[in-house]
Design a protein around this nucleic acid. Structure first.
Lengths: 235, 235
DNA sequence: TTTATTAGTTGATCTGCATCATTTCTTTTC
DNA sequence: GAAAAGAAATGATGCAGATCAACTAATAAA
């Protein structure tokens, strides 16, 4: 794949505003600029593995990423999706632990890495940063609790609609041009908490009902409002 | 119920160490001491409701509490359990929102309340406090993600074993005296993500297998190790 | 292009758990 | 202590969704 041109400083990054680091001062950012690394991954490649040591804070420069957990019998649950500007691994880092999730590239992507010690320096020196992190974590926790409720009690059909909406948000470009989402039935199932067969069947229903269009493993959302409605029938 | 004798300052509280505030300095705690309130609730009473405004940080002085979410069709999912020293509502408070969960007394209890403005003063002035909160949230997030995985793919039997272990931890006294857990089949089901009938049936199996004893709606865990084993068959 | 490989679709079947219904056991309450 | 109310146990039934299997379409490799 083509070598990416990542700016030297985060301030020059197009995702700066959207990112956690948006809250940081110039001074601290130069620290980050000194230490940060970046790496390209092609679609399907693992960024970090469940069970590996958390080496630093990852920040998506380009592309989409899935964060997932594997159960012992090999079933995958996608916990959340990350896009440009989103950070990964902060939880494991905070807990001083091994990664409890894995991150995998959903598209070709480029991810920056702020080494562990620099992350902690930031955390200590910059209360803005720790505040942003606190709010990010609060938001993620709320989303996780919501999904827990839905996974426990909502039928698969509604959860699939939710999953499609999550994908829609993650893949939506900044300009409002039409777009399709490259995602396998298997990943769609892992995001929904079901099997690929059930995901395939229900997606066909959605297609027949005009909610989405499919071309192989590319999905185009045709009606966000109707998916929303479907997803929150119970809600 | 008997009037509780809550100490004036958090430092004098027997739960001080275990609590979030354990990280705070003397000076800031006097602020809290000035503003804090406390309230007794009897078993079954609601401490705060889903949808109500987050009025402050709750801290359990005595008793056990369930934090739960209600789905639109009236099904309840217990998100977590809180015991002496645990804080409630911090997430909603952080997000400056309405409460997305409800808290209900599982036993008679006494809960302190640190008003909203005092919470934010603490957060600003004390980096120890914000750090503790960050770690607490990270832990909770990890647990929520774990439960999401289990809820999606583990059979009810194993999730019930997990639920019993969670209850065991929440109700375990400091001294290692034997104890039983007062919890309805309905709450047990809400913690597991199933129906009361299924919870009842499986609990009877557990009783017959010698894992637990039951006397009405009191449950005694007889073998924590075997429950653990059962809960992590897949894990 | 042709072939090989992987991914998606669709059908048939099976089962875990929800739902509904009834009875029995506990708690309250009077 | 009897009556009423509530919670738990248990049986019968139905169905959503998992699993297994066979086939077809799409993508990658030769």
């Amino acid at each position: 794949m083509v070598a990416p041109s990542v700016p030297l400083t985060c301030e020059a990054c197009p995702n700066f505003e959207r990112s956690l680091l948006g809250a940081c001062q110039h001074a601290e950012l130069s620290l980050v600029a000194g230490g940060k690394l970046h790496q390209a991954y092609s679609k399907g490649q693992v960024i970090f593995q469940q069970g590996s040591r958390a080496v630093g804070l990852y920040c998506v420069y380009q592309g989409k990423v899935k964060i997932s957990k594997l159960s012992a019998d090999g079933k995958e649950q996608i916990i959340r999706l990350a896009r440009e500007g989103d950070v990964l691994c902060y939880r494991s880092l905070m807990m001083g632990q091994v990664c409890t999730t894995a991150a995998t590239a959903l598209t070709d992507c480029v991810v920056c890495l702020i080494p562990r010690p620099d992350f902690f320096s930031l955390l200590e020196q910059n209360s803005q940063f720790s505040n942003s992190l606190l709010r990010l974590m609060a938001r993620n926790l709320g989303e996780a609790e919501e999904r827990l409720l839905h996974t426990a009690y909502k039928p698969v059909r509604e959860r699939l609609a939710e999953a499609l909406l999550l994908l829609y948000q993650a893949f939506q470009p900044d300009t409002d041009t039409p777009f399709s989402i490259p995602v396998s039935r298997e990943d769609l199932a892992a995001l929904t908490g079901t099997t690929k067969e059930t995901a395939s069947r229900l997606l066909s229903e959605f297609r027949d009902e005009g909610l989405v269009a499919t071309q192989g493993s590319r999905i185009t959302v045709l009606s966000q409002p109707r998916l929303n409605q479907l997803a929150s029938m119970y809600n």
